[in-house]
Each structure stands twice: as structure tokens, then as C-alpha cells.
Design a protein around this nucleic acid. Sequence first.
DNA 1: TAGTGGTCTAGACCACGTG
DNA 2: ACGTGGTCTAGACCACTAT
Lengths: 288, 288
Amino acid sequence: MSSLPTPLSAATNPGAPESGTAPSSAGAQPSANSPSSLPAAQGVPAGANPSPTFSPLYQQIKALITQSLQSGEWKPGDMIPSEMDLAARYKVSQGTVRKAIDELAADNLVARRQGKGTFVTTHYEDVVKFRFLRLVPDEGEPHYGASRVLECKRLRAPAEIARLLDIRTGDSVVQIRRVLTFSNEATVLDEIWLLGANFKGLTAEKLNEWKGPMYALFEAEFGTRMIRATEKIRAVGADNTAAELLSVEPGSPLLSVERVSFTYGDRPVEVRRGLYVTARHYYQNDLS
Amino acid sequence: MSSLPTPLSAATNPGAPESGTAPSSAGAQPSANSPSSLPAAQGVPAGANPSPTFSPLYQQIKALITQSLQSGEWKPGDMIPSEMDLAARYKVSQGTVRKAIDELAADNLVARRQGKGTFVTTHYEDVVKFRFLRLVPDEGEPHYGASRVLECKRLRAPAEIARLLDIRTGDSVVQIRRVLTFSNEATVLDEIWLLGANFKGLTAEKLNEWKGPMYALFEAEFGTRMIRATEKIRAVGADNTAAELLSVEPGSPLLSVERVSFTYGDRPVEVRRGLYVTARHYYQNDLS
DNA sequence: TAGTGGTCTAGACCACGTG
DNA sequence: ACGTGGTCTAGACCACTAT
């Protein structure tokens, strides 16, 4: 159910009113299927497909656009071609492209801006940043804390991390440990594991020099873009290490947040375990 | 920014190609605005509206449908009229109704089922239940625990609850305290405050007799439907009362979940403070 | 077979942002 | 003035579900 190449599979082509160059004559062309050849990649297998694994055209267009996103044809921050251009490129109507982009916008892969164009989202934007940092201060505005990296080293993946990252035990991973400080109070202790293959050359120095969201560094320097994540949240007691680094009493309650982050194709690339001090902050969530 | 009646305000009517009974003749009718009278409620002020507070037609249709939902014309579980019927009723095209329903479906107010119709969602459905109960067992399937109501009484709202419910301090509220048990382990201690005006006649007996989600009772018996909620999550130490009721040591870490739930018009109707034992369960969240 | 949602197209016009 | 996304319509046909 994941990481398959999605071979642009077959599909019928419902509702295509046959490339009528003559606009009116109101009648009803009975059937005539398989126009709209979609040659931009592979192409639809023309005839014969009553309904096995039906995939609508706009989903195929969405997949093609996603491929261009993933391949770097359009980079974060870039404007992608206009709906009309894409319609011409894929030989479909503007409405079909529109529906594809609608879904990509709903998935937060792109953002539409009326009058300007459609842009590839980036982790520099506030909107995106706070989708991945849900810790909000009791008083004052949400802000981005200062990060101090304690450690950054390559090692062989322990069994549990390997399982979550869908790799083999012992495969290379990068481990980072850091403390996030909000308003001069140590608030978050993060332990992060990254897919070794994707993050060659990542060092503590590079991380400490970087100002701004870590995910922005990842997308800019390593071409790895975090698309979505799942989190498992618990309350735990602080162990001695955590207590010292966060300046709290051992055993005092901390929020434990275990995150797995995914890039394109729903491939997991990061496991993160965060310990949050929630004395003056809370984790914000919306049920909607 | 909330609880205003939304007076169906004014709007231009872009793109309406004038009720052409003659289908073709390809030419371009220059302008001619303000058809599509929308008489089903209030009606659009016909002419004159260049662009102050522009509201698209489908948003107005969405508001009208929401009114019918709220007024009880279509109840939870009911099928609403077909897109064609609604298009006729509101004197707009099927595509416009479609877009309105698309948004209502995205808001989880209705659910579409191909070949069958569009249905008003209810808190009986699993999908909805687990949108509001995010506690998942480490092992095994998500399940719905047994509820034991400790207390259910009317009282005057304390200041903080009143503030969250957007009422005055001292106004009537219903307070419920209950314990949720999963697989024979007390796991959740809830303290709930409900808007007094909406829940006349709610008793501990009624709550204890009820099998199934509490929100299903609310929607079926009290006509109050929870649409969305916000939660603030922290880690806290168990006080003596909580420790006893949840069979944990005093001071042991618990997840504190403060929820405010809203009905139609984004009016708050419930404040809930839950304490979760997260030894064998976790709070599941998706960042997407 | 009939009804419902779902897909696709083509064309016209509006609102927004920039020259 | 122009280009971009956004709205609206009308009509045809497909996929799914029930009768």
C-alpha cells in the first residue's frame, strides 16, 4: 500500500465529449471512447478498460504533478506552471488540472495565491512551521525557540528505529540530540533519527549555524521534504538525563511525543522522540 | 468572528451566462448581471455589488444547507435531497450545489456515498467517534470503553468555565464526572461542563443507561451536535482524587486534555477536562 | 432500469495582483 | 492591460447501488 511506483495505471475516460471542433449541433454522440491521449508520460492504454481499478484522470494528473515536484522540476518556493499551461501539457481540460491541484493544495504540497499563481510550499512559511511545532505558550504569541544541538553522529539503526523507518536493523542512520529553548527556558529535548542515505554530510556544526526550522534546512540542503507525520503522545516521568537537561525534578511529568515523518510516496525518513515541559506551554490540537 | 447570524449577505454573480434557452450561437453576451434569483431564503439583492465583501454563490448555498441542517429539517443519519433537487430548489446549477456539498463533506457535516446519496453524519459512526476519542491502545484495535458516571448535577458556572463557554459567570451549567474503563482498567477521568440551556433533563441515570458515545446521546436526545473541538494537552502529576479513581500512584504522570467543543455557528457548548492514563494507551495525532 | 454521486469538458466572466 | 486563480453554467457520460 506504499512506495509503489504507481504505473499511471489504466483507466476509462468518462465523459469526454469527443474533441468537437464544431461547437453546437446539440445532438448526443453515443459513445466513442479513449481520446485525450495523455502522452506526457506513458500514456493511457487507449481502449479496453471497463472498470478494473478505475482511476480518474485528475488523479493521474495529480500523480504526474507530484512526480515533477519530487524530481525537483519545481522546487519549494517556485511557482508551478499555470493551470492553462498544465492543461495543454497533459492534454486535458483546465477543470481537470484544477481538480488535481485542488487536492495537492489540500495535501499542503502546493499553495494557491489568487492573481499570482500556484507555489510549491516550503518549511520557511509560518503556516507550515506551526503545522509541525504544536507547542504554544500559555501567554504570548507562538514563537520559534533557539536550538542547541548536543550531538550529531552516524550509527547503525537499532531494531525499533529500523522498523519505524522501514529499513534493516544496522543500516546507517544519523542521530541528533538537541534542546529547544523558549524565552530562556529549556522546554524541549529532542532525540532524532534520520535515514542515513538521505543525510550525508549533516553535522552538528551545520545544524548549529542554521537559523530557522530544521525542516527548512533539510529541504534546502538535502532535498528531503517532510510532507506529513504521525505522532503518539503520552505523559511520562523525567529520567535523570532529561531532568538535568530540562532543569526539572527527576520524575516530574513530561509530554512524550513520538513522531514518524514521511516524504513523497509516504516513505518514512525521520523518527523523533520529543520530551516537552508543559508547565508554561501546551500542545495544541484541533479536532475537525 | 463567531456566532453572528451571517445574513446571507450580498454578492455579485460572476460568470452566469444568462439563462440561454437557445443552446449555441457561440457569441459572447457582454454582461447582463443578476439572474439566478436565489429566492429560497432572503434572496440576493439583485443588482449593484461591484465587490464589497464578495461571497461566492456556493458559499451562500452552503450556508443555506447548513441552516437546514441546524434547524433539523434533515436530521443526523438522514439523506439530504439530491444535488439535482437542491439545484432546482436554490435555482443554481448542479455544479454549484456540488461545490457547496464538497465543503460540507470536508467539514464532516455530511458524508457522500456514491450511488446512494448524501447523508447527515452522526456520532454513531465509527469514523466520527474516533475523531473525538484519540486514545489508542498499544496493542489491539481501538475500542470504546465502558463509562461510569460518578456525578451529574446542575450548578452555576465558575468564571473560567463561563469564559470558555462564552456565557456569564453564574449562568447555569451541567457538570458531569465520569470514569472510562478500557479492558477492565480505569483509563480516563473526565470532568465535563455543558451549557445548561441546551441540556435540561440530563441526569446520571440517563447517562448510565445509555450505551454508546455520549455525543450520540447529545445529538439524539438534546439536538446538540458537536461539530468540532480544540484541545490543549499537557503532562501533569496525578492528585489524590485522580490517583484513587484511576488506580495509580499520586504524582504519577497523566495526560491532561482540555477540550472545548463547538456546535453550529461555532458556538461553544462543552468544556471537558480529561486525565488519561497513558501506560498502555497513547494519544494519536496526525500532522497533515 | 432508474437514481445518485463522480468525472470531464468547454466557454464565459469575475476578483486579484502586477505591470 | 494582462495573466493568474476563482466562480458559474450546461451538458454528456461513467460508476455504484438499489429495485
